[in-house]
């Protein structure tokens, strides 16, 4: 199964590089925000594969925390784009 894990990590890494390309090139701020959101979701996938490899379930704690915090961060960025105050 170690070959499977290596291929999985390689695919996730390639996806992250494509995301980073969009973060760097993105012509407008919303493009970058979308890419950052997607990168956050990919990190959850990374944590899952690591949990599977090492059989340590604390990676899942990182995955849950990362999913929620990246959601809050994306919402804050979206509100900033919209030009609204943060508590509405």
């Amino acid at each position: 199964m170690s070959v499977f894990v290596q291929i999985a990590l390689a695919v996730l890494l390639l996806s992250s590089v494509l995301c980073l390309h969009r973060i760097g090139r993105g012509p407008s701020a919303p493009d970058r925000t979308v890419a950052i959101d997607i990168l956050g979701t990919l990190v959850v996938g990374f944590c899952c594969v690591m949990a599977l490899t090492t059989k340590q379930e604390y990676y899942m704690n990182i995955a849950i925390a990362w999913a929620l915090i990246s959601f809050v961060g994306t919402l804050a960025l979206a509100k900033y784009l919209e030009g609204r105050s943060y508590d509405a």
Binding site: P30, D37, A63
Partner: peptide, 28 residues
């Protein structure tokens, strides 16, 4: 159990984030 909880979180939060970004992008 943690993986199931995390899947539920991702499934609920990700569309909301996309909706917020698109709305913000259009209004900006």
């Amino acid at each position: 159990l943690k993986a199931v909880i995390c899947a539920a979180f991702v499934l609920l939060t990700s569309p909301v984030a996309a909706h917020a970004i698109c709305r913000g992008a259009y209004i900006s």
